[in-house]
Design a protein around this nucleic acid. Structure first.
Lengths: 213, 213
DNA sequence: ATATGTGAATTGATTCACAGCG
DNA sequence: CGCTGTGAATCAATTCACATAT
């Protein structure tokens, strides 16, 4: 089976969002051209990305918004609900717990963990915070698929290992550090500090360029 | 001037973090090999990435942790402070406002904006929340370089345009939508929902593969 | 007529091998 | 002798052109 560029997967997510917006606006048909415009890529790119997975359009007429949206949801595994846990109930963990878009996309928050006894037992958005020691039992009981990892950097790798050992297959790592993917699990980093530093690089660079002209 | 791959910039940020950790642990020297191990890339990659910017090591002896760290900070534009504003003081905005690592890296939170009159006037982490109407004046007065954009998707593009017009050169977009980079500004997306959907894709895919074996 | 789907060409990034310097 | 720095080779991704289907 052809291996899919990670950039393609990212773009599929973008196309899906655009299609959802079109669907909400009750637009029924679209084209690679239009999707490309909204996603800020080329129309070639859109068609090539879709071609990895099949043929979804009709020549001369473009794509059905509903059909393509359904197909992308199927490809991305978004037709079934995923059980999600938040690990690390600091400010970020809490902000995520009440984030309404999680449920909208069928990511169901089913549990939350922390090591702080002061937090254990409290409820956030209908979910009781458990002690991290309960991860093995709870992950298996609640069939948790994905963990949002919001613990401090130094605790991230151990937590990821424990989660994967307990059966979690996807980890969204918010800690500003690179962690090894434990056996059997995928890790996606979400590092906004890194994004800030990249911005710093580009801004500084454009200012340096200005100065030399 | 050679154009730098964006992936290289991302990796430089990672190398810098590793060097900072080494420095804290009072390690004085390192090698492309070691940096590569920590960053989960090849040693070739490390050397090639650095080669875009100059020669920082001594052959046979590797790199001085302090020197390379300094150089990377210079390259990434992190030797000067950046003035940062948060635009959109919902839960995420608040979580960011109190995030201690911002200041640690010389990103100084100097202002915060929202459109909600109930929020305007309140203080968060020593910063008064202003009405979004004040953006043009405040950005210029406070010399704001970078905005953390945490408004709803539908407001993101307009806010970005307003910020850029007022003189902001870097925008970290937390809204789950693709926005155009307004003239004169760089945009970095931070979209954890997209990360979540990518995870969904990879998990679902590995499960499908298991089923066929 | 029109817009998709796709092999071929091009561009870009990563890997490699080794020359060069300490 | 060890490890960096770098041109050359490989590999991957994007772009293109056009044949194809409606």
């Amino acid at each position: 089976m052809a291996s899919i560029p990670t950039a393609t997967v990212s773009r599929l997510v973008t196309y899906l969002r655009i299609l959802s917006q079109l669907d909400e606006a009750e637009v029924t048909r679209t084209s690679s051209e239009h999707l490309a415009g909204e996603a800020h890529v080329s129309a070639f790119q859109v068609r090539k990305d879709l071609a990895y997975f099949g043929k979804f359009g009709t020549r001369g007429a473009g794509y059905s918004v509903q059909t393509l949206r359904q197909e992308l949801m199927r490809i991305l595994g978004l037709t079934r609900p995923w059980n999600v846990a938040i690990v690390g109930m600091g400010r970020l963990g809490e902000a995520l717990a009440v984030y309404p878009n999680l449920a909208r996309y069928d990511f169901q928050l089913t549990s939350a963990f922390d090591v702080d006894p002061a937090k254990v037992g409290r409820e956030v958005n209908g979910v009781r915070i458990r002690h991290a020691d309960e991860i093995p039992a709870a992950v298996s009981d609640l069939k948790i698929d994905i963990a949002l990892l919001t613990v401090p950097s130094e605790a991230a790798q151990d937590a990821a290992n424990a989660l994967a050992a307990a059966g979690v297959t996807g980890i969204l790592n918010f800690a500003p550090t690179v962690i090894d993917a434990p056996p059997g699990a995928y890790v996606e980093p979400v590092d906004f500090l890194a994004g800030l530093k990249r911005l710093s690089f580009y801004i500084q660079r454009s200012k340096a360029k200005e100065a030399t002209t």
